[in-house]
């Protein structure tokens, strides 16, 4: 039994192929302007990777901002539910997450789970995109690096810079003046992650309880941010396997649960 999950986010369209207890393949494309074309291309690619025929797919389920515009999907589900489902395959064996922090391209979510792993509360950033992937992307560009490298660079910092603004535009101004003061970019990045962690921590602290904290989404690939968040909350933060695909994996699992009910 094969299932496909599609997660149409603000920046990337993520796709995965799973069976009941395993992620077989994942694939990602920039969101671009044609979700349907991208989705078809991703599904073909996944089938190729998984070495299966398209007819063998039992169900396709979508999530994310553009979930309703993906015509090939049989069902769709909201991001919050998808992430709660996804961690069943991504959280790793020794981790029992009761709190999921998802850092996406343009939003961040904090999802609180009950002991059965079901959502019992959640918050999303509602005012702006500060503290999300887009924020790091903009800053990485100014600092002449890429989003994949900011994490390891920031870990090397010995003396983090102070960054006070949480707004992308104001932080940009602040960072330009830090560059003018000849601050090391490692220190700037480390300060930046600390300021993001402060913001995320404010949202997360409300729901911290017994159990582990799991990071998902593209942001979980950023080791600098994880470290900053651990320092902010003074606790372990676990990173989901296939973190960027957690939403897609969750959608696939949700699709599977619907089919099983039928």
């Amino acid at each position: 039994m094969y299932y496909i999950g599609l997660d149409g986010g603000s920046t990337y369209l993520k796709a995965c192929l799973i069976t009941k207890d395993k992620v077989i393949a994942t694939k990602v494309l920039s969101s671009g302007i044609s979700n349907n074309e991208n989705a078809n291309q991703l599904i073909k690619g996944l089938c190729h990777l998984g070495n299966i025929k398209e007819e063998q797919i039992n169900g396709i389920c979508s999530t994310g901002y553009s979930r309703r515009s993906i015509d090939i999907a049989d069902d769709n589900v909201s991001e919050i539910t998808a992430h709660a489902f996804g961690i069943r395959l991504t959280s790793g064996q020794d981790v029992t997450p009761r709190l999921v922090i998802d850092i996406g391209g343009q939003d961040m979510k904090v999802i609180s789970l009950n002991e059965k792993g079901k959502v019992d509360n959640f918050i999303m950033n509602d005012k702006c995109a500060a503290g999300t992937g887009k924020f790091i992307e903009v800053i990485a560009e100014i600092l002449d690096t890429t989003i994949d490298e900011v994490g390891s660079l920031s870990k090397e910092s010995k003396n983090p810079a102070d960054i006070n603004s949480t707004c992308v535009v104001f932080a940009q101004t602040e960072i330009i003046s830090l560059i003018a003061q000849k601050k090391d970019r490692k220190d700037i990045l480390c300060g930046l992650h600390a300021s993001m962690a402060k913001r995320i921590g404010k949202m997360a602290r409300k729901y911290i309880k017994n159990g582990d904290i799991l990071m998902t989404g593209g942001g979980a690939k950023n080791v600098g941010l994880i470290q900053a968040l651990e320092d902010e909350l003074m606790t372990d933060i676990f990173v989901a396997e296939n973190s960027q695909f957690n939403g897609a994996i969750g959608a696939a699992l949700y699709g599977m649960s619907l089919k099983e009910k039928e």
Binding site: I80, F122, M124, D126
Partner: peptide, 26 residues
């Protein structure tokens, strides 16, 4: 938290929908 503008309707809907799903799955 919102006012009378309609610009944030979509963002609000994302949260409302997740809330509705959450209750349904309880």
């Amino acid at each position: 938290e919102t006012d009378y503008n309609t610009e944030d309707t979509e963002q609000i809907k994302i949260r409302l929908e997740a809330f509705v799903e959450m209750i349904k799955m309880k």
